[in-house]
Amino acid sequence: MSAAAGSKVVLVTGASSGIGAEVARQFLERGHTVYGTSRHPETVTDPIPGVRYVRLDNADYQTATACVAEIGAVDILINNAGESQAGALEDTPIEEIENLFRTNVFGPVALTKAVLPGMRERHSGTVVMVGSMLSSFPVAFRSNYAATKSALKAFALATRREVAPYGIRMISVEPGTIATGIGDRRSIHIGADSPYRGEYETLAAATRHNEESGIDAATMAAVIVDAALAEHPKPFYAKGNRAGLVFTLRRLMPRQVILDMTARIHGLSRVKS
């Protein structure tokens, strides 16, 4: 399908709920042609009128190729879909860590690779990697998730120069705590008798409180949409959790101070190491 004059063809992954749904809605409201992905597009419970849903499973790289082949030319790709994970590293099976990287990193990379040839040939395109502020401010018991989002950011920032000569823009966006209910879908790995269980429960309670009072999905979506449509987008955007202040502190303060501050925000006391 070809877009109307002035509009873009936008592909938003994970568009059936949360930030992805709001991003799809806002692109549509601005007059763009929007495709949203879901592992089961026929079962999307609250479809957005005007959004065309296509199948994509981040853990199945072949679906990335099939998805792009079905849509055709993609002007803007929003890599938003992913899974959340928490727990003690010692208690998490290596297979679960591999699965998380497959879904949160390798799947988005596969989809990006699928759209790049067309963007390069047209000398135009934008790819946004939606990460997490846990990448910049990692905290205990979220190591695997933070690592996947750090990998996404590195892909975006390193590839930015690689594809720039072909008119392609790569952008990394880090949301802070968002009130989307993602905590209800998070996989947890903590043993019943784990020595880490007490501190994990402390962090989990603080995380639930922070998520309940986090910024709404529509506010975060507006940052993503504005960045994707900007004439000269910055390489990196962050929103939520007083991003302006904490990133300034991150530049000025010793790394250990920032790690201790992040731990305290999540209910954990400082431990001298």
Score class of each variant (00 low, 15 high):
residue 141 F to L: 04
residue 2 S to Q: 14
residue 115 V to A: 11
residue 119 M to V: 13
residue 221 A to K: 06
residue 167 G to Q: 09
residue 188 I to M: 08
residue 106 F to T: 01
residue 121 E to L: 15
residue 84 S to D: 14
residue 262 T to M: 04
residue 53 Y to K: 15
residue 226 D to Y: 13
residue 269 S to K: 13
residue 178 I to D: 02
residue 230 A to Y: 15
residue 6 G to A: 07
residue 183 G to F: 07
residue 30 R to G: 00
residue 162 E to P: 02
residue 174 E to W: 01
residue 259 L to Q: 06
residue 272 K to Q: 10
residue 8 K to N: 05
residue 191 G to Y: 11
residue 104 N to D: 02
residue 77 L to Y: 05
residue 265 I to M: 09
residue 171 I to A: 11
residue 123 H to R: 15
residue 248 T to L: 14
residue 73 A to G: 01
residue 47 P to H: 05
residue 90 E to D: 14
residue 256 Q to T: 12
residue 71 I to Q: 14
residue 256 Q to S: 12
residue 107 G to P: 07
residue 12 V to P: 08
residue 190 I to R: 06
residue 52 R to Y: 15
residue 100 L to W: 09
residue 107 G to R: 01
residue 185 R to G: 10
residue 36 G to S: 09
residue 229 L to F: 08
residue 163 V to C: 02
residue 173 V to I: 12
residue 201 E to Q: 14
residue 226 D to G: 12
residue 221 A to M: 05
residue 114 A to F: 07
residue 268 L to G: 02
residue 241 N to H: 05
residue 124 S to M: 10
residue 174 E to L: 03
residue 63 T to G: 08
residue 15 A to F: 13
residue 98 E to C: 09
residue 147 A to C: 04
residue 104 N to R: 00
residue 14 G to N: 08
residue 237 Y to R: 09
residue 146 A to T: 03
residue 152 L to T: 00
residue 224 I to P: 15
residue 223 V to T: 15
residue 230 A to T: 12
residue 241 N to R: 12
residue 114 A to M: 07
residue 29 E to S: 11
residue 10 V to F: 02
residue 250 R to G: 03
residue 227 A to N: 00
residue 148 T to V: 03
residue 66 A to L: 07
residue 117 P to Y: 08
residue 70 E to G: 05
residue 127 V to L: 09
residue 131 G to L: 03
residue 181 G to W: 02
residue 107 G to N: 00
residue 48 I to C: 12
